[in-house]
């Protein structure tokens, strides 16, 4: 008997509805305060972005656990999501972004080794306009690190960049995810069982 299966969008909305919420403006202002702090402390754009990326990375690592615990993606559950190829990962990623950030994303490019995700609303940059002397700062680098951290926990070594950003004058935000390699599951060689 074929079990009933749900679309990823439906599941994502279900997950989002169940999540306890926090005010998006408080979130945006808090992130803004952090970036302002980093600008004062670290000065160069490269260092600021590296720090944001690192923070996003560790947030992503924690989010994966919560996502897997709450999303129940096992084959026997009522889920239409299976990741047989890397590009299918984008569907699950879209679910996670909806669940944590409440944003609806659109799939952009879908190739074997890279895909992109587009979104109109960026909760990080709610009240933001970049000053002229920081116009090339990638303000939303945290999101790139976030996605990189999540996928790393799923054994994908990826490079994430903001291909387009509304803050820099593009029509839409677009995150590009490039697959470097699939990591080996399990512990390393030097791990020995007692």
């Amino acid at each position: 008997m074929a079990s009933k299966s749900w679309s990823p969008t439906y599941l994502a909305n279900q997950l989002w509805a169940k999540q306890p919420k926090a005010n998006a403006e408080l979130f945006a202002l808090t992130y803004g305060a952090l970036v302002a702090e980093l600008v004062r402390d670290l000065e160069t754009n490269d260092k600021i972005q590296a720090e944001l990326d690192r923070m996003g990375h560790s947030m992503g690592i924690r989010s994966v656990e919560e996502f897997l615990a709450k999303a129940s993606l096992e084959p026997q559950s009522q889920t239409a999501v299976t990741c047989s190829q890397f590009k299918d990962t984008s569907d699950v990623l879209k679910m996670a972004l909806k669940m944590f950030l409440g944003i609806t994303t659109e799939a952009g490019v879908q190739e074997d080794s890279h895909f992109s995700i587009q979104f109109a609303e960026n909760p990080l940059s709610l009240f933001v306009e970049l000053p002229p002397d920081r116009s090339d700062l990638e303000y939303s680098q945290l999101l790139c690190g976030y996605v990189r951290g999540m996928l790393e926990m799923l054994q994908f070594d990826v490079t994430v960049t903001m291909a387009q950003s509304v803050l820099r004058g593009d029509e839409v935000n677009e995150m590009r995810v490039d697959l470097n390699q699939v990591l080996q599951a399990g512990a390393g060689d030097d791990y020995q069982e007692e």
Binding site: W16, Q19, P20, K21, A22, N23, A24, E25, L26, F27, T30, Y31, L34, M55, M59, R62, S63, E66, M99, F100, L101, G102, E121, P123, L142
Partner: peptide, 12 residues
């Protein structure tokens, strides 16, 4: 549209 998840805020 005016909310994010509480966990996202807490992680940040």
């Amino acid at each position: 549209e005016q909310t994010v998840s509480l966990s996202m805020f807490s992680y940040l």
